[in-house]
Design a protein around this nucleic acid. Structure first.
Lengths: 368, 368
DNA sequence: TCCTGCGTTGCATGCGCATGCAAAAATTGC
DNA sequence: GCAATTTTTGCATGCGCATGCAACGCAGGA
């Protein structure tokens, strides 16, 4: 491990007090400078409190001159509200998660909350995390695509910590969740593929997730209802590599599927890689692949993926709304299901009917 | 905006006190239960303090029974160290940034720091952010790929807040930075393309960034030194769409370039999209494209991008190290340049010499 | 036995701000 | 102009933990 480094050590002849050592400005300093009490300073920086314009401007002037900034930590301790929301998020290599994270940051930011990041290793126990989360005194916790153990949920409930699951439901009906419309989405995709006249349907799952189970179940239900059957079912485990492996299995069958529903875009993109590059298949003609998320890359020409879009910004808004209601104690828990749209591109054969919308974003809507 | 919601309002007949209203357990409660003083409890939870085993176990027992967790906020106020690092990060649609973020989270986590997220809009002033950052009392600040104004830097310095720039240098030599080896990387790429026997070199830049400027300058310098010239130079502005636009310009020239150096992978992937899908070019034969980052997608078969890899984990480590040294006051600032490797794949013609390494990760090393 | 020294403990205080309460000032109504 | 309000202000205190200091206990040496 070699690298270049250049720099200077802190000078030893500190004639003037180094900035870092200077005592930080507190509300008392401002109060003294402005000739008012510390309470007045506090009120000047707390919107909605009783303070005269004259005092306010005196305080503001003094604060500006001294470079005063309220100490958020002290405020937290005093109000016992941290204005922080913990976010437990899985590895970010699936670009859906960064997108969600960004949307969450924006949405919570608008309500005056900041995000404290807890990155989680896949398949790892949350117990050590739990402890940190509860210690950190966040006002709420958003768990993205993560299962929550009942003991974890209990402990959060006990300590009064609002929890909202995002993109994943829980078994117990004790925890709020915001999810995309997996059932409706999968059904729409099934209809779409059916309308496209496909024969052999396959599903590439993601292990151990309510989302994957829901999508698979709804997909199967539609197929059964229409006297079709699931030709093949494999598990890509939400991993690019593993999906590649199982995709090769699918495409090496004597009777290969002609319609593959992937549990999400990331999985679908891996499937496209294999189909195009390794098997030289022309998507939309020889093989149809559909995903879920409508992540940014789905729209890239090389992929041109037909996918059921999840309205990320809207989902984030619902998370915030749910969280705030729980913080206000107006709500114990709730379950929000956000519907999306089937965005039609070139990776799957397009039915003769049901397509609408402008060329750059065509939508497929059954029965309407 | 329609969605489904189900849930229950909080019951009004609260016979027992709701969990959220119950007073949280403090160190005093534990002290009383364990028959010791509050200081003892504090010491029990502070590693490296003087406490006997007997007292420690008594406290631990009581704490476990009461479900006590130290209040991090109070600890912050008391120690005036938040164990929080602010991270200012640009929009995450370029997957390099989520990867960096994750690496930072892991690296800082190992040193007991958590990340507080500040997402920044591209091209937006940081002034409002600055205020929030300083108020939030983070112990340090990492700015990813973001320029820092001198006034911002001054204010941070004045308040003693250590700042480390990641993937971007600053003009003033007052702020620490950790960057990939742009100069060496660009030079290596130039050599690589030169050795591959290309004729017409082009560069797709990213506006307004030291990184882009450095890479372009080093690329040009090499070309000039070897009596070659830059056939074309366009600006993709780090945007997928804009890169598409300028890429079309490049490929529509009477004399189109045969070697394109893209400022980063994200830009390169967009370029590949246009070259492959719109112009049907076979990369590595008719046209060579090279990027920088070695992001995950670069390795995807559909892209198969030759790229100068940036060792993300290592860069994150250096950020942490730099930050910790500044926190300890052992260092004013430093500049770390982390070298990478040119990962050879199929998007650019491969020279006859200099390639080594296993098939799954071939490296090109000049002059060795 | 007494003293020294070390390891452990509790006491008291401070971190910086928010806020209930009462006093003071400003405003209103008559 | 004066009393009744209403608004503004300051005082005092608390949020929960860390920590300097002094007191304490215990072991070893003289």
């Amino acid at each position: 491990m070699k690298f270049l480094r250049s720099g200077f050590n802190r000078s030893h002849e500190t004639s003037e007090i180094p900035a870092a050592a200077r005592r930080p400005i507190t509300a008392y300093d401002v109060a003294r400078a402005a000739g008012v009490s510390q309470s007045a300073v506090s009120r000047a920086f707390s919107p909605g409190t009783s303070i005269s314009k004259r005092t306010l401007s005196k305080v503001e002037k003094a604060a500006r001159e001294l470079g005063y900034r309220p100490n958020a930590i002290a405020r937290m301790l005093s109000t016992s509200r941290s204005q922080l929301v913990g976010v437990v998020i899985p590895p970010l290599n699936n670009p859906f998660y960064p997108a969600l994270l960004e949307a969450l940051s924006a949405a919570f930011g608008r309500s005056g909350y900041r995000l404290l990041l807890f990155t989680s290793q896949a398949q790892q126990s949350f117990d050590p995390l739990l402890s940190e989360v509860l210690s950190s005194r966040v006002d709420g916790l958003v768990m993205v695509a993560a299962a929550i153990s009942s003991s974890f949920a209990d402990e959060c409930k006990q300590s009064g910590l609002p929890v909202v699951l995002l993109n994943r439901k829980t078994d117990s009906r004790d925890v709020s969740s915001v999810v995309g419309a997996s059932r409706v989405g999968a059904e729409t995709i099934a209809k779409f593929l059916h309308a496209g006249g496909h024969r052999r349907y396959a599903f590439i799952a993601g292990s151990e997730s309510s989302t994957s189970r829901d999508r698979e179940a709804a997909f199967k239900r539609y197929l059964i209802k229409h006297d079709l059957k699931l030709h093949a079912r494999v598990d890509g485990n939400y991993s690019f590599e593993q999906t590649g492996v199982v995709m090769r299995q699918l495409l090496s069958m004597k009777q290969r599927p002609d319609a593959i529903f992937c549990v999400n875009d990331h999985t679908a993109l891996s499937a496209i890689n294999v189909a195009r590059v390794e098997y030289g298949l022309e998507l939309g003609r020889e093989l149809s692949i559909v995903g879920v998320d409508d992540s940014e890359m789905a729209g890239w020409p090389v992929f041109d993926l037909t996918t059921y879009g999840q309205p990320i910004a809207l989902m984030a808004e619902h998370v915030v709304e749910t969280m705030l209601m729980q913080l206000d104690g107006k709500l114990d828990f709730t379950e929000v299901i956000v519907p999306g749209e089937l965005v039609v591109r070139g990776s799957a054969r397009i039915p003769k009917w049901g397509v609408s919308g402008p060329p750059e974003r065509r939508i497929w809507t059954p029965n309407k």
